[in-house]
Design a protein around this nucleic acid. Structure first.
Ligand SMILES: NC(=O)c1ccc[n+]([C@@H]2O[C@H](COP(=O)([O-])OP(=O)(O)OC[C@H]3O[C@@H](n4cnc5c(N)ncnc54)[C@H](O)[C@@H]3O)[C@@H](O)[C@H]2O)c1
Ligand SMILES: NC(=O)c1ccc[n+]([C@@H]2O[C@H](COP(=O)([O-])OP(=O)(O)OC[C@H]3O[C@@H](n4cnc5c(N)ncnc54)[C@H](O)[C@@H]3O)[C@@H](O)[C@H]2O)c1
Lengths: 247, 247
DNA sequence: CGCGATTTGTGCACGCCTTCACAAGCGCCT
DNA sequence: AGGCGCTTGTGAAGGCGTGCACAAATCGCG
């Protein structure tokens, strides 16, 4: 399953990257660069400067250059970065050259929306299996996939070579589901349930919690409200604030 | 050194805290503590140690203590933190004492799921208005709310006193919607569309992008795969990894 | 009433990340 | 061919966040 050899540069075999430990902060920004690059590419741009790409991705240009330098990028001084080449580079580093199989557990309100989300397929992923514990849901067909019973997770996950598990069940069931995913050999989990998951070392968990996002916004609202009522007119710009780019 | 005077005790209006600039990292963790505290409270705990709460929230106990110390918390040495009191404290700091009104724009796949999400109401928010541009969607009733046309956003937003806007439209429409939200006086935006928003200073934007989360997981998968094929068996634990706590 | 067990609050050191500023490199124009 | 302007790549500095380790504080118990 692990592919390494991979001529990422068209015509230029070059040395296999065996690439370094990217700073985590950089890794988190690469997808953003990638999206911006795709937009630029579709808009007809062949090259882009760090300034331009930084604007499109909503970050500082120095940061962007440093990020790209970490993966030994191929920019041309005086010109900028080759859009197509950079896309290929980043996709390789992120491991998107192989379309990763995603298994989705919990086909409720959120699960339905996720199952039908085209943003997954267009960004390097493929949902290959849907699971639920509710007998009424099992058998339902959604976007060409049939909902399987959770008990089949182990079998189906290995058959379909599921690399990433997505949990969209109620919080109470999330840990049990995570355990089953891990038992099935899944080593990456995206968790939408508002709870902490316990997983063995080597398994990565990322969490998305909408209420937390709203509460952070609420904090800044609260802060802004008390600031306007006070002297000292700092135009306080919060955390998630973003600059940038017209279309 | 900082102000700790703060009548958060029920029935005590007290002096306005004018509370300090919490580190952003701390703010991002407070909601997690809050959720853990609610769980503990429902489980019947009156007090909790930093160790216990840290485990329930999936963080380091020293970090938790430092976080709480920033908001002048009231822990008791040798005992721990009073659960109910701490809940009140954090909810106050996050501005959750006033239930904030949320306006949701884009009632498609994702929008439907969000509109019916009970996690909003249970965590301090209230969806007060739904908007869409599609005439077929306008008028539809969802969980007691009627979908309004996007043109009514300005009017309805001020009527309902919308504090936070949630964007769940396609990326192409997101910037326009954001502009309208800002024009309507909304100063906090949660954006689900995969694009960078440009907003004036003083407006906070937070973004949730599922594809980015998956791509970060993909990177770690890729890295883990190349590590197992290489010497030096570091059990590399990625970024989002979480420890634990049982129930 | 005093002592030991327990737990908080925090000073401090370390490492990561961000940002500035600039030399080196590249292409284009004359 | 040479110079000029533009852009990348990076050294260095500063700030922020994390985690350790311990003193101070509180409670329960004898
Ligand atoms: N709806 C939203 O917009 C939204 C937003 C953010 C987070 N969430 C979170 O996502 C999760 C799902 O939300 P929802 O609104 O879709 O809830 P839901 O109740 O509509 O769906 C949950 C689904 O999980 C299934 N399920 C329950 N236990 C299971 C198990 N052990 N194995 C497999 N499937 C199981 C249920 O049958 C149901 O179909 C919740 O944790 C919720 O907090 C939802
Ligand atoms: N479906 C998912 O699970 C999912 C997950 C992550 C992110 N997203 C993102 O969320 C957004 C919505 O996704 P979706 O699957 O619900 O798409 P969708 O097409 O089902 O829904 C989009 C809705 O927005 C409405 N809309 C379009 N332009 C509008 C405008 N100018 N003003 C108001 N409403 C407008 C449309 O009428 C439609 O109802 C997209 O940007 C998508 O990338 C979706």
């Amino acid at each position: 399953m692990s592919q390494q050899r991979h001529g990422s540069t068209p015509g230029e075999p070059g040395a296999v990257p065996a690439f370094p430990d990217l700073p985590e902060a950089t890794v988190a920004r690469l997808p953003e660069y990638l999206r911006a690059l795709h937009n630029l590419g579709e808009a007809g741009a062949d090259t882009v400067s760090s300034e331009g790409l930084a604007a499109a991705a909503g970050v500082n240009s120095a940061k962007l250059r440093k990020d790209l330098s970490h993966l030994g990028s191929y920019g041309t001084r005086g010109v900028g970065y080759d859009v197509a080449l950079l896309i290929e580079q980043i996709e390789f580093v992120l491991g998107l050259d192989q379309r990763r199989a995603v298994g989705l557990v919990g086909i409720g309100n959120l699960g339905h929306a996720l199952a039908g989300y085209d943003g997954f397929v267009s960004r390097g992923f493929k949902i290959v299996a849907l699971f639920d514990a509710d007998p009424d849901k099992v058998g339902e067909r959604i976007h060409g996939l049939t909902v399987r019973h959770i008990d089949e997770l182990g079998k189906v996950a290995s058959e379909e070579n599921v690399a990433i598990g997505v949990i969209a069940t109620p919080a109470g069931a999330a840990q049990a589901v995570a355990d089953e995913l891990v038992a099935a050999g899944v080593t990456s989990i995206l968790n939408f349930a508002p709870c902490v998951l316990s997983v063995p070392p080597g398994v990565d968990v990322r969490k998305v919690d909408l209420a937390i996002e709203l509460q952070i916004l609420s904090f800044h609202e609260h802060r802004k409200a008390s600031l306007t009522a006070l002297p000292g007119g700092r135009s306080a710009t919060g955390a998630g604030n973003q600059e940038a780019v017209g279309s």
